[in-house]
């Protein structure tokens, strides 16, 4: 049974002062939010603190919160990029993620070649990729552009291709960060339809976005983060 159970998750890390010959940089790393404690060489960032929630098959969770609230950090913990420093995370199901449209895409390679590269990075076998290539091309509506270099694609075309690849192999749990708003209105309708289909096939979708409208249309649950802590869930 596909599920996500997060119990009292915490991600805190020591702000390592990189050894450098230039004057000390007092700024904090940009990639995570949360709260800062300590000072000098003993600064810690608590990016997530006491985060608990449960999702079952068919749930579509919208993650909301101001910049630095911990949305992306939570997605990366769920995906396994960051390891929680405390708490328990129990994920049942194959997780796929779409954090950055351009990851794994080579500018000089054709869309078709990029399907292979992105598929390999996602952990698919070449047979699985070959079996789904035509379906990906059809969904992405790239037509003859599929044999053109990726650098000739608009942002919308790149988003369609990335989304088509990520959702074609039926991920059981799909994590998405913001970028889905990058496509045009027609693409968003199509993407929502596919996400509905995925959720109906007993998957879980977690989508981080600032767009209340997109989340209302897409999600059936909402988790609001503030400085790395859960403000509301339901």
């Amino acid at each position: 049974m596909i599920s996500i159970k997060a119990n009292d998750l915490r991600l805190a890390y020591h702000v390592r002062e990189k050894l450098t010959l230039r004057p000390r940089d007092k700024r904090l790393p940009q990639q995570t939010g949360g709260t800062i404690s300590g000072s000098g060489r003993h600064r810690f960032v608590t990016a997530l603190d006491g985060v608990s929630f449960e999702l079952e098959a068919g749930d579509r969770l919208g993650l909301v919160g101001a910049n630095g609230a911990g949305k992306t950090t939570l997605l990366k913990v769920l995906y396994g990029i960051y390891e929680p420093t405390a708490g328990k995370l129990d994920i049942k199901g194959r997780v796929d993620a779409l954090f950055n449209i351009s990851i794994g895409f080579r500018q000089e390679a054709t869309g078709r070649r990029n399907i292979l590269l992105r598929g390999l990075i996602n952990g698919w076998t070449e047979d699985q990729i070959a079996a789904r290539t035509e379906e990906i091309i059809e969904f992405s509506e790239l037509g003859e552009f599929i044999d053109m270099p990726f650098r000739s694609y608009s942002q919308g075309m790149a988003a369609r291709l990335a989304f088509a690849i990520a959702t074609t192999l039926d991920p059981e749990i799909l994590l998405m960060d913001e970028w889905i708003g990058a496509g045009d209105a027609a693409f968003q309708v199509k993407a929502k339809q596919r996400m509905d289909e995925l959720a109906e096939r007993a998957g879980i979708i977690v989508l981080a976005s600032h767009s209340e409208e997109l989340l209302k249309k897409t999600c059936n649950k909402r988790l609001e983060l503030e400085k790395g802590r859960v403000k509301s869930f339901g």
């Binding site: 990639q31 995906y79 396994g80 990029i81 954090f99 950055n100 990851i103 794994g104 990075i121």
Partner: peptide, 9 residues
């Protein structure tokens, strides 16, 4: 960096 912070490779 983009791979390291965006994939689990």
């Amino acid at each position: 960096e983009s791979f390291i912070s965006g994939t689990t490779l």
